[in-house]
Simulated scan of single mutants.
Amino acid sequence: MSERIHIDRLHLRRMRFKDLDHAVVKAYQQALRGGAKFPPIEIVNIRGKLWIHEGYHRYYAHKREGRKTILARNIIVYE
């Protein structure tokens, strides 16, 4: 099940910013401006902290566009 998550609640794993394909992020930003809908990012809930598992490029596109929320799917919960 997918839900909208506030971007500020999300934590990033060890993917380095320089490893992002910035052209992809920019293309996603343009698509967002045009009204495109993206599949949910995948997150892992570890003791209440939400970590991005998959969807870094979508996350950065939403963040750069000033979006407050992003569609996310919780794939694993660790208590």
Rank of each mutant, 00 (worst) to 15 (best):
M1K: 02
S2T: 08
R4D: 02
I5H: 02
H6V: 06
H6F: 11
H6E: 14
I7A: 05
I7W: 03
I7F: 08
I7P: 08
I7E: 04
D8P: 02
D8K: 14
R9W: 07
L10W: 07
L10R: 00
H11D: 10
H11I: 06
L12I: 09
L12R: 13
L12F: 09
L12E: 08
R13T: 14
R13E: 14
R14F: 11
M15F: 10
R16A: 13
R16K: 15
F17W: 12
F17Q: 11
K18F: 12
K18P: 01
D19G: 03
L20A: 09
D21M: 02
D21P: 07
H22Y: 06
A23L: 02
V24R: 12
Y28A: 08
Q29E: 15
Q30D: 15
A31I: 05
A31C: 11
A31H: 08
L32W: 10
G35V: 13
A36T: 12
K37M: 13
K37S: 15
F38C: 03
P39T: 05
P39H: 05
P39K: 06
I41R: 05
I41F: 07
I43H: 00
I46P: 02
R47G: 00
G48Q: 02
K49Y: 04
K49R: 10
L50A: 01
L50E: 01
W51L: 09
W51T: 01
W51H: 03
I52D: 06
H53R: 12
H53E: 14
H53W: 02
E54D: 15
E54T: 13
H57L: 03
H57P: 05
R58F: 05
R58V: 08
R58D: 06
Y59N: 01
Y59E: 08
Y60C: 01
A61S: 11
A61F: 06
H62E: 12
K63S: 05
R64E: 12
E65T: 12
E65S: 15
G66N: 06
R67W: 14
K68E: 15
K68R: 15
T69F: 01
I70Y: 04
I70N: 02
A72E: 05
A72R: 00
R73G: 03
R73Q: 09
R73E: 11
I75M: 11
I76Q: 01
V77C: 05
V77T: 15
Y78F: 10
Y78K: 10
E79H: 10
E79W: 07
